[in-house]
Design a protein around this nucleic acid. Structure first.
Lengths: 134, 134
DNA sequence: TCTTGACTTAGAGTGCGCTCTAAGATGTAT
DNA sequence: ATACATCTTAGAGCGCACTCTAAGTCAAGA
């Protein structure tokens, strides 16, 4: 490594920084979630700060359970420039609503699960259990 | 349908009551999530109240994102009788913890997403946006 | 008797989101 | 020169949780 570090991060560096694998980074690029990443002279990818920003955003969307298809739609809009911002907001807000609903459902399930656990614990400790076991 | 209704529900009835498909009910039985369901004279399944209770419980577990494998473990314990209750509680409590963590993560993601949406809306309405776009 | 419809089985197929393989190019260190 | 590490590509494979198909049985109704 005599040559000065050329601008940009290698795929491995980005993988380590983001927690995605290099495989996944290439996959995301192939299916259009990332624009073609700049290449170093030898054809190797070099990621810049903007790329990193998009990758973090994609991670957020996936983390919220957005399907890849919807993410592709979003990135297609993003590629169309600032005129698409309203559409992008719509898409995000729809997803936000779904996420909110899902969280609520999970909270209900959690309460239900706690109820079940308490029921089984009641049996264990010999305390007469609530006959309603639902 | 002259014969008096024999005890128990048909697979279709249970499907409608639970929101699972008949396919899924057979699948759950095949992989050991349900004990062998009683059969009517002609070999058709007949579900009783207890079966229904287990199915609702399985739906709860799946609804909380428990993997099928773990559900199989749980049902294996259940088949071993009351001596396994402590182990079942352990399993459920571990899962409860994971569920709780997942809900927390989703809530963080939701906040982050809201932040993003607000950022984009700021652009739309021409209000100078917070330069920190993360 | 014939048709219809609900059920049975074993096993194949599906959609999702990666994840990995194979073959090859390039660059660095000894 | 040689060994190695890291990257490239196209495309195959995987794990999960269903979901569906094909071929067959059975009972009720026209």
């Amino acid at each position: 490594m005599i040559a000065a570090k050329e601008a940009g991060l290698t795929i491995q560096e980005v993988a380590e920084m983001t927690g995605l694998t290099a495989h996944t980074l290439r996959y995301y690029e192939k299916i259009g979630l990332l624009e073609s990443i700049d290449r170093h002279g030898n054809g190797h990818r070099r990621y810049d700060e903007a790329d990193l920003g998009w990758i973090h955003f994609l991670k957020l969307l996936r983390g919220t359970g957005m399907p890849i298809q919807q993410m592709q739609q979003f990135m297609e809009l993003a590629r169309q420039g600032d005129d698409s911002i309203a559409d992008r907001v719509d898409l995000l807000q729809e997803h936000r609503q779904e996420l909110f609903t899902r969280i609520s459902e999970l909270q209900e399930h959690l309460a239900h699960l706690d109820h079940k656990i308490a029921y089984y614990q009641g049996i264990l400790t010999g305390i007469p259990a609530d006959p309603c076991d639902s």
